[in-house]
Design a protein around this nucleic acid. Structure first.
Lengths: 200, 200
DNA sequence: GGAAAAATGGATTTGACAATCCAGTTTTAC
DNA sequence: GTAAAACTGGATTGTCAAATCCATTTTTCC
């Protein structure tokens, strides 16, 4: 973990994590073998075990990478939210992303969660942290709307953001299972309508 | 598939499916080996391959079994819905179920979906069918409320039931990841409040 | 009651996977 | 420039899983 890394070493490590993240997202952790990662990253077996203690450690690095990847793409849309229409833009962005990927994959964090949560406590914690950050981003977006007077002061951003997360994750899961964004759109739209009952 | 089954054969087959369903729900499909199933069901290796062509066929039987298991427990609560409070009872039932299981496991269909949807088209279809049935059950419950005059005629049960499914599945996923039913309760409660905007 | 079909037990084969080893090369830092 | 540390390549080992085989027992049904 704390050994020195040369520029080349860092690059190799990054290539491994990137390849592993891609594969684990597509096929799941169990469905991704270290030989798969080795080939995809263009490294040799020993490289993987030079940079990571075992497959578990690699998986944790992948969770880390996927968490920041997912959040970075949304923070801009949710920060500086100035109207309820901003929520609709965010919804449309997510729906488009799913359509563009052929309704496959679902949510990187969601997929790994249902695979790892029950039997890997450390991974579960890391994934829960990812979800927390996501929910806080939504909450702050809603708070923004309250501060700006778009929503009434009796609005509960904490509660509503939790509800948004549920609709979002479920929508993504169902998109993957049904090859259709109907449930995702319905879930997010209904939540937005729920928020609108607090409009000034 | 269509060979004759004696009473004993049927019982053995059932034992295999039940054991496999339990294990696959707990550890995922990839995390469940046929030796695991063999031991849990108390049969020999050849039995499994006597009743199922391969692990894939067994997995399909498990999906079937889990689908009916999940739906049977909810149909009573959603059929004969006479008030919005009935939806709250349904929500409380689901939340209690999750709490009783220590917030583990999530939804059997949801777990299998995120694992299988992307690389097993046949399993994906079977799981999508399970979700469809579930959604239709909710839709019919809402229709019931419209027919009884509890909800206004402009209510769209199809749309709202899709949204319910999203909140439900996401809530179950997050329960598993966060070891807390907060998001599940928030998602379902917000949806119920959304439905209440259609009250007469 | 006896032949055919169904069911069972367990050993066995084949392949893939996680992880290790060791020998060689490149980079760093003094 | 040279020694130590970092990095790389690929062969190798031990384990476990999916699936098959074959020999034996039990049930069915006429």
């Amino acid at each position: 973990m704390s050994e020195k890394l040369t520029a080349r070493g860092q690059a190799t490590r990054d290539r491994i994590v990137t390849a592993a993240a891609q594969l684990m997202f597509e096929r799941g952790v169990a469905g991704t073998s270290t030989p798969d990662v080795r080939d995809a990253a263009g490294v040799s077996s020993s490289q993987i075990y030079h940079y990571f203690a075992d497959k578990n450690a690699l998986t944790m690095a992948v969770i880390e990478a996927l968490s920041t990847f997912v959040l970075d793409r949304q923070r801009e849309l949710l920060r500086d939210l100035t109207s309820v229409d901003g929520l609709r833009d965010w919804r449309d962005f997510i729906v488009r992303l799913q359509r563009d990927s052929g309704c496959q994959g679902g949510c990187p964090l969601g997929s790994l969660s249902s695979e790892l949560a029950d039997h890997d406590p450390i991974a579960r914690k890391a994934l829960a942290d990812g979800f927390d950050q996501w929910q806080l981003t939504i909450r702050d977006g809603l708070r923004n709307l309250v501060d700006r007077g778009v929503l009434r002061p009796d609005t509960d951003p904490e509660y509503l953001s939790q509800a948004f997360m549920a609709a979002l994750q479920g929508g993504l899961l169902l998109t993957q299972a049904q090859h259709s964004t109907v449930a995702l759109e319905a879930g997010l739209t209904a939540m937005i309508e729920r928020v609108e009952t607090h409009r000034t």
